[in-house]
């Protein structure tokens, strides 16, 4: 039996879809069987980030409506084996799906796969509720900005109400130089405020844009700092006890944190 992980944030545009695509790819590269599910009905993105848009025939909507079997709706990745995508319908909207229907799909998927990563839409409404409905674990993505952390706090509260207590925080788009000059909150600041299990930092990296242009997740790029970060986070999710790296000597991160909750 696998795990369903919802990737969510509250605030829009902080890197949920990027994180879902990269972590899904990185987990598959660790020889795990993975499905990434786009739950952003009406505004689908994940297919494009993964470079699979031309292969999408069916969506989760077709599965719910019974026009297609779940197996048949999954799109196989081009490069990595055991990596699949369940796309979102572009012509429907978030209220056309009920949490129970999404949950059923997730339960069915985790019978067959090790990890089911669900890319949540922004917001705290039904789209988020659908995405989180079947989740065992939540990954909360935030950037080191006031508004984003505030929304993350709101989402953490909602997830707790939904009894999804296993949560991990990813801080995305960290700019080490700005942290150094005191113009960006560092991970310690954010963890201090949110008091939640911390699973990693992804630096600001223009390779993210380049790789999204190409439809190849940054995870494949061993030169990219963001790609390296995602590969490490994936190993941590998969239960390896590896420290979060420091961005520069003598900096704030250190090996202070232990990451056991995802085991």
């Amino acid at each position: 039996m696998g795990k369903v992980i919802v990737v969510t944030s509250g605030k829009g545009g902080v890197g949920k879809s990027t994180s879902t695509a990269n972590l899904g790819t990185a987990l598959a590269l660790l020889n795990q069987r993975v499905v990434v599910v786009d739950a952003d009905i009406g505004l689908r993105n994940l297919d494009v980030i993964m470079g699979l848009e031309s292969r999408v025939v069916y969506t989760s909507m077709d599965v719910i409506e019974g026009t297609c079997d779940l197996d048949k709706a999954l799109v196989k990745d081009r490069r990595t084996k055991d990596l699949h995508l369940l796309a979102a319908s572009q012509k429907n909207n978030k209220n056309d799906i009920q949490p129970e229907q999404m949950k059923k799909i997730c339960l069915e998927l985790k019978e067959e796969y090790d990890y089911v990563l669900v890319d949540s839409p922004a917001g705290i409404e039904q789209g988020f509720r659908n995405a989180a409905a079947g989740a065992d674990v939540a990954i909360i993505v935030t950037t080191p900005e006031v508004a984003s952390v505030r929304d993350a706090d709101r989402i953490i509260g909602l997830l707790m109400n939904m009894e999804i207590d296993d949560m991990g925080l990813i801080i995305n788009r960290l700019a080490p130089k700005m942290v150094e000059s005191g113009d960006m909150m560092n991970p310690d600041d954010i963890i201090d405020i949110l008091s939640i299990n911390f699973i990693g930092v992804v630096p600001e990296d223009k390779e993210i844009v380049i790789s999204t242009n190409r439809g190849l997740p940054t995870t494949y790029n061993h030169q990219s700092s963001a790609g390296q970060a995602y590969r490490r986070i994936a190993r941590r999710i998969d239960g390896e006890d590896i420290p979060i790296p420091e961005f520069k000597p003598g900096s704030w991160l250190g090996n202070l944190f232990k990451f056991n909750s995802f085991k």
């Binding site: 900005e145 006031v146 952390v149 505030r150 706090d153 942290v179 005191g182 113009d183 960006m184 909150m185 560092n186 600041d189 201090d192 405020i193």
Partner: peptide, 15 residues
């Protein structure tokens, strides 16, 4: 104050 410290204390208050 460093802007990150301002951000942090504003956040704490907001939250």
């Amino acid at each position: 104050q460093k802007s990150k410290d301002v951000a942090k204390s504003r956040l704490q208050l907001i939250l």
